[in-house]
Design a protein around this nucleic acid. Structure first.
Lengths: 225, 225
DNA sequence: GCGTGTGAAGCGGTTCACAGCA
DNA sequence: TGCTGTGAACCGCTTCACACGC
């Protein structure tokens, strides 16, 4: 009865979030319909792959025509669970944490920071993005009263694991971790890791191997006829 | 003759960067040797998978013993191309860009920001992380004189594509993009996308589907003997 | 004996080609 | 005719099991 039960591959879920962003832009500019080809182009993927992704939601287009922009957007939002705003807590308000707290993009995409936490006395009480920074001791209370299920860690690496422990103890079930450490969390808690250095190092590798390849680069290019 | 020529899978490259981080920590704490099991545990992966990953670099352990911490670390660093510091430029010094420019972790992991750029007059001239913010007009010159091949985009979405165009025109070959848009770049230029909203939305999905699954959750748990 | 290195099997995701419907 | 929806082939990564070497 529920078409999303048979499980959606995680790779597809990540792309659905991208489609959602593109569809939002199209809707804002007044478009009412798109083809898989156009949508795929804007999202940077293969049209057939996009249709396969959408097929996990059940039929949602019109053959020979395309997809209804607003309808598809709402459907994806519902599947992702961001059709209404979700409560998040953020721990660690250094440069990165402050940037996240201040980032307007989250609010418009279905996330609201209902609690900002730090352990440093000089940060507590500050206002960031219109919300006060609280001491970590209030974490349990805030998570309980707001029913927040998502936590974001933007602390130094050394304390990230202990923050993770406190978040899970407080009832948070999903964690986005920016600290450069691999976190251990109880079963049933999802942890996603964003490591900025890893991203740069992958780029560095592609960069280096591209350079080495240049030596053997195909010289085939003698005019085109 | 070069063991890394047969191409290393990108998934493996990303994990190599994680191993590198873990090995750095082990070396700092004085450890001289590790087994695949221990290293895999600390990196959050399967031991057999770790050995398979390392096999792409050619034999680099001692059978029956394990891996030499410093030796493996240096070898991975060389393969990734971060054995010496690499020059990067950063465009966009809002909250996120400033956080990145200020992040000490990059310096210790083989990256140096040799140029910070913004188009906003009130940001130009500011010092962030000990470096001055310059106008975008100086981009070509800085890229040329420093031979920077990596660029980081932390601008608003609206201008990200034009910044991407300028970076590639200036000679940058690898781009890390934080703006929530899909960039189009010439062939031969690698673009990696980090979209914070996408990460949160994937978490939201896992969160929602976990909740639905709870209804059918295994009640098997009747003491442990 | 122990832990690395690796061929082989297994699995999931991507691509293709075409059937189906407006 | 045009574009969606999808079964099937294809490809690459992950996992397993075991041979190899200290």
């Amino acid at each position: 009865m529920n078409p999303s039960r048979p499980r959606i591959p995680e790779a597809t879920v990540a792309r659905l979030a991208v489609y959602l962003r593109v569809l939002g832009g199209l809707a804002d500019s007044g478009r009412s319909s798109v083809s898989s080809g156009e949508l795929a182009g804007a999202a940077g993927v293969n049209p057939a792959g996009l249709r396969k992704d959408l097929s996990h939601l059940g039929p949602c287009g019109v053959r020979g025509v395309g997809y209804d922009v607003a309808g598809l957007r709402d459907r994806i939002a519902r599947v992702l669970g961001v059709e209404r705003s979700r409560a998040c807590v953020l721990v660690g308000l250094g440069n990165l944490g402050s940037a996240l707290a201040d980032y307007a993009g989250f609010g418009s995409r279905g996330f609201e920071f209902v609690g900002l936490f730090d352990s440093s006395p000089e940060r507590i009480g500050q206002d960031i993005g219109g919300r006060p920074v609280r001491p970590l001791t209030e974490l349990d209370e805030v998570v309980a009263t707001t029913s927040a299920t998502i936590g974001v860690i933007a602390t130094p690496a050394e304390v990230a694991q202990s923050v993770c422990d406190r978040l899970t103890a407080a009832g948070v079930r999903s964690i986005l971790n920016f600290a450069p450490v691999t976190l251990a969390a109880p079963a049933g808690v999802d942890v996603r890791q964003v490591d900025l250095s890893v991203e740069l190092q992958v780029l560095a590798f592609l960069d280096t191997s591209r350079d080495s390849d240049d030596v053997v680069r195909v010289p085939a290019l003698g005019g085109m006829s």
